[in-house]
Design a protein around this nucleic acid. Structure first.
Length: 808
RNA sequence: GCGGUUGUGGCGGAAUGGUAGACGCGCUGUCUUCAGGCGGCAGUGUCCUAGUGACGUGUGGGUUCAACUCCCAUCAACCGCACCA
């Protein structure tokens, strides 16, 4: 045992313990251990050149604290980390600097790793996954091929954002506001055949699976909204004087008698079918052209103002009334949703109302309860059906059921369900991504790369620049493109598009269970042992796409018998953002990023960790405050300075502190489990202050404080633990347990109020009866003088809390 | 527009319907010091006649003996979705 140094030298002790931790196997998850497993997951970072920022620290810290606590609780903890390293920033930087993305990625990962260690994270660094490692993306490609085999991966036409000036296809993020991110020219929509994953086939199960996922309201509803299920009906409207019919989707089949016109999307095939019968086809074509020119952005921006063209000479027939009704083409109807056609019921739909008003169309009331001369009446609770022979007098809900039965009986429609979620466009025209393992053969068509030929490796070339045709950079690399067909052996060409960045992250949590397996993405035994992620924390921004995509992949792997559980995560939480000191979002461009390294070198990692957890409620956004950091450091200094006051020979709790200690254990434990780190730390500060006031503290008092603080500030605790003479590390020391019997107060302060206003306080025995307490309260001198001359109407006694005297 | 979340001191933020402002930052006074820093002690919502005084949790109502907390309305900020039929 070295001599105790009165000043807390963070830098020195942090280096010392990090070396011991990381050189030993202290944080290694033990496969098949007898202990109960616990799998804590954080979203693996993108290893950018700037390295780690305080946002990462906050994001990782919750599961870091939980993992450290779980180890003390005797669990076999899997707390892994890895890198989502494919992606645009690296590729763009590579183009700029002419350094290969492989080199940049390796460099960035090395930096990130050392930063994680200097913050003292207890990750199992032996399980690091890197999505750009062929040993990893081999399995990303393998899963893709499995999906292809099961017809969940297919090719179809899609519209992509294309910059005519840069000749590059842009992601949505790169084309915000309809402008190209790099050259600011207008982005146009270009048709392209691309890969899709049929996630819509899983829509219902992704929705149902939410019942297996513990999360807050916000996380749940964002996913529900994203999936966007709605129930209704398909209805077939015959086209007058033809055999054809127009199929629409509606959630309100009950309003069918009020359908006074039809609207179809500009891309609807009906326009082609009845090309010859539409008298104003030129005008229609002109409108189609205009709609096509509009970018997604413009269509949304101009949403308020309805436009459209009536199809002259073509009518639909309302199948219930037999009446002819006009058909319009308008871009407020989307070809990508439902059937791309609607029955318009202006009296009971706001959008149709706007359109009808603008074009002077009939508005027919079929539900009573509103005033349709002013606005559409869309309420579904109160209204009663009118002007609707089959369903008159019914309420909306009953009317819907009745009319669907009627539609089915008369063969004009059926119940139907629609989702907002669309199939997942699964490719990018980029170099730095997983190659899609597909070969095109003139004779055999689309041929999957045989499983045994995986991985299809990215060629390590110098030409990773974008092409000038909107194709992937890989298209220019002949030795990559040219290959032989695995089926017929003739010369063939490889797919040159790569997968989107979401691919690798859709299954990384599975790889962590068995990261070095060469035979399988993870062995069945280990998938069974580690099983579902017990707790997954990450950003709110990934709650829709990443969470849904990864749940989709997992469900698919479950279906084909490769994974033993349907839902991958048991519980999902999300940290709040750390904003700049000006309350603005921290942005790299404005140089407002707080670098955690600066804080660590000035105050230490323990201080950084404590402050980041103390700054606010973990799930809320909050501004960074530099001076607040000092407070965290001051707290740790205080804990350090208590050391000389510890009476080593005294191994029981100090009587005067015992109650406070048990209350603190209890509070801190539940606060941590509920992500209330700020109040947990506040409780530890309070206890520390009490220890400071005490004449002396016992060994047990102090050791309990250290154990409680350890998950939050591990270095200082490990050092103090060691200074107390312990040879073993604190890592696996048991976490304190509160004794509820020792938490109760013997004496309590009771507040006495008159008409709800606090007027007096009194110390009483905690076990006093309500009647005794009431008597004591009323007899108080001060109370007597205040209620003199008034009548006591009522007295409310809340045991151990207050007495309220109601007077008149 | 729809959905969700949040509004509390100078600041970050605490409060199972029961003492509003825990804990921390900052600030004021004071002690230690040659001085600064560190540390200790006391104070720090607003107002006044300075008191176990009145008022006070975005705003306006309501329920209750009692409301930051529950209900209704309203305003603001942030996040998500956005002509989804």
């Amino acid at each position: 045992m070295s001599e105790f140094i009165p000043t807390f030298d963070a830098e020195k002790i942090e280096k010392k313990w990090q070396e011991i931790w990381y050189n030993g196997d202290y944080f290694k998850a033990a496969d098949f251990s007898e202990k109960e497993k616990y799998y804590a997951l954080v979203e693996y970072p993108y290893p950018s050149g700037i390295g780690m920022h305080v946002g990462h620290i906050r994001a990782f810290l919750s599961m870091e604290v939980i993992s450290r606590k779980r180890r003390m609780e005797g669990k076999n903890v899997l707390f892994p980390i890895g890198f989502d390293a494919f992606g645009l920033p690296t590729e763009n930087y590579a183009i700029q600097t002419q350094i290969h993305p492989r080199i940049i990625t390796d460099r960035n990962i090395a930096t990130f790793k050392s930063q994680l260690r200097s913050a003292g994270f207890s990750f199992d660094f032996s399980r690091i996954v890197d999505t750009t490692d062929p040993e990893y993306y081999k399995w990303t490609q393998w899963i893709f091929l499995k999906m292809f085999e099961h017809r969940l991966a297919y090719k179809d036409i899609a519209y992509v954002n294309y910059c005519p000036s840069c000749k590059v296809i842009l992601s949505n993020e790169e084309s915000q506001g309809g402008k190209c991110d790099r050259c600011d020219s207008n982005v146009v929509q270009m048709e392209k055949t691309v890969w899709f994953l049929k996630i819509t086939e899983y829509a219902d199960r992704l929705l149902e699976g939410l019942n297996e996922l513990e999360s807050n309201n916000r996380i749940r509803t964002e996913q529900e909204k994203w999936i966007g299920k709605s129930k209704g009906a398909y209805i077939h409207f015959p086209v007058a004087d033809s055999d054809a019919s127009l199929k629409v989707f509606t959630t309100r089949p009950d309003t069918i008698y009020g359908a006074t016109f039809m609207v179809i999307a500009p891309e609807h095939p009906l326009l082609e079918t009845f090309h010859n019968r539409i008298q104003n086809i030129k005008e229609v074509h002109r409108y189609q052209e205009q709609a096509k020119m509009k970018s997604e952005f413009e269509r949304i921006e101009l949403a308020k103002d309805k436009t459209g063209v009536k199809l002259e000479g073509l009518y639909a027939v309302n199948p219930l009334t037999g009446e002819n009704i006009p058909i319009f083409i308008s871009d407020y109807v989307m070809i990508t949703y439902g059937t791309g056609a609607i029955m318009a019921v202006p009296a009971h739909d706001t959008r149709d109302y706007e359109f009808a008003t603008k074009f002077g169309l009939d508005i027919l009331e079929v539900i009573q309860g509103g005033d349709i001369t002013k606005e559409a009446y869309t309420d579904i609770e109160g209204g009663i059906l009118v002007n609707s022979p089959v369903i008159n007098g019914l309420q909306v809900k009953d009317a819907i059921n009745t009319i669907i039965e009627y539609l089915v009986d008369h063969n004009i429609g059926e119940a139907a369900t629609q989702f907002k979620m669309k199939d997942w466009a699964f490719n990018r025209q980029r170099y730095w991504g997983e190659p899609i393992p597909i070969i095109y053969c003139d004779d055999c068509g689309i041929v999957p790369v045989p499983y045994e030929d995986l991985p299809v490796e990215l060629p390590m070339v110098e030409k990773f620049m974008p092409t000038d045709t909107g194709e992937s950079p890989l298209a220019n690399i002949e030795e990559f493109v040219n290959c032989t067909c695995p089926k017929c052996g003739k010369s063939a060409k490889r797919e040159t598009d790569t997968m989107p960045q979401w691919a690798g992250s859709s299954w990384y949590f599975l790889r962590y269970m068995d990261p070095h397996n060469k035979e399988r993405f993870a062995s069945e035994e280990l998938l069974n042992y580690w099983n579902r992620v017990d707790w997954y924390n990450g950003g709110m921004e990934h709650v829709t796409r990443h969470l849904i995509y990864s749940r989709f992949w997992n469900q698919f792997l479950y279906d084909i018998g490769e994974v033993p559980f349907q839902e991958p995560y048991k519980k999902r939480t999300a940290q709040g953002l750390i904003l700049g000191e000006d309350n603005e979002k921290m942005s790299k461009s404005r140089g407002k990023v707080i670098n955690p390294n600066d804080i660590i070198s000035e105050f230490g990692a323990d201080t950084l960790r404590t402050y980041v957890l103390f700054i606010s409620d973990y799930e809320m956004s909050t501004p960074w405050n530099e001076s607040g950091v000092k407070g965290a450091r001051r707290f740790l200094d205080k804990v350090w300075r208590l050391f000389p006051n510890v009476v080593r020979s005294k191994t029981t709790y100090t009587k005067a502190l015992e109650k406070a200690i048990h209350q603190t254990i209890d509070g801190v434990t539940s606060d941590i489990e509920n992500l209330k780190f700020n109040t947990a730390i506040a409780k530890l500060m309070t206890l520390t202050n009490e220890f400071g006031k005490a004449e002396a503290i016992s060994l047990k008092d102090y050791e309990t404080l250290i154990r409680l603080l350890y998950p939050i500030a591990p270095h200082i605790c490990e050092e103090l633990w060691n200074q107390l003479g312990h040879d073993d590390l604190l890592v696996f020391e048991p976490y304190p347990i509160a004794d509820p019997k020792k938490m109760v107060d013997e004496e309590v302060t009771v507040v006495i109020s008159i008409n709800g206003k606090v007027k007096d306080k009194v110390e009483v025995d905690a076990n006093i009866t309500n009647q005794e307490l009431q008597d004591v309260a009323v007899k108080r001198e001060r109370i007597q003088s205040l209620i003199q001359g008034q009548v006591i109407v009522k007295v409310i006694v809340v045991p151990k809390k207050l007495v309220n005297i109601v007077v008149k």
